[in-house]
């Protein structure tokens, strides 16, 4: 089984049934998962920050880093696998976006990430069918391309699915 490992700000897709698309230790970062039932393609972006306006150069170098540039980049990548360019028919799942306990507005970066992503998805007419967002723990996410099953893990906790 091959693994497609995505780091912070990376995005990628696979339609090889044996593959697993995976990202490690999401804190406040959010993993945007797009599943295309028609072409059986799985795509994911590991988004770190809500808005690319703070550093355009970084957004050009790593579009997956910011919510506003990650989703268009992921859709374009998935189009290479024959998926609809605007995400029509895709199933969306979101996870990550953790916060610190007793967080204040400044530190609610996980919440801001999730909200920014949802707003952009809404603009495409897409909404998440499943999400595991917020709370105060880190999440490692793995998606089986064959089954589309999303498995989450975190140190000290049993694995779970969404």
């Amino acid at each position: 089984m091959a693994q497609v490992i995505l780091g912070v700000g990376d995005y990628g897709a696979s339609n090889a049934p044996g593959d697993e698309v995976k990202t490690f230790a999401l804190g406040s970062c959010v993993s945007v998962i797009l599943l295309d039932p028609k072409t059986r393609t799985v795509g994911m972006a590991h988004v770190a920050l809500p808005d690319s306006s703070i550093n355009k150069a970084k957004a050009t170098e790593k579009p997956g880093y910011f919510a506003d540039t990650a989703i268009p980049a992921l859709l374009a990548e998935m189009a290479k696998f024959g998926c609809h360019k605007k995400g029509k028919g895709m199933v969306v799942k979101l996870c990550g976006g953790a916060n610190v306990m007793d967080s204040n507005d400044t530190f609610q970066i996980g919440k801001r990430n999730a909200l920014a992503i949802k707003k952009i998805l809404w603009a495409y007419g897409m909404g998440a069918v499943a999400e595991d967002l917020g709370k105060n723990f880190s999440r490692t996410v793995a998606i089986s391309v064959e089954t589309g099953q999303v498995t989450l893990s975190s140190p000290g906790r049993p694995n779970w699915n969404i």
Partner: peptide
């Protein structure tokens, strides 16, 4: 420390298991 943990670089099971002091 909190920023490192939020960025996904904690030290395992204790990551984000502390309170922010505003």
């Amino acid at each position: 420390d909190n920023i490192a943990m939020l960025g996904g670089f904690g030290t395992g099971s204790d990551s984000l298991q502390y309170h922010l002091d505003s």
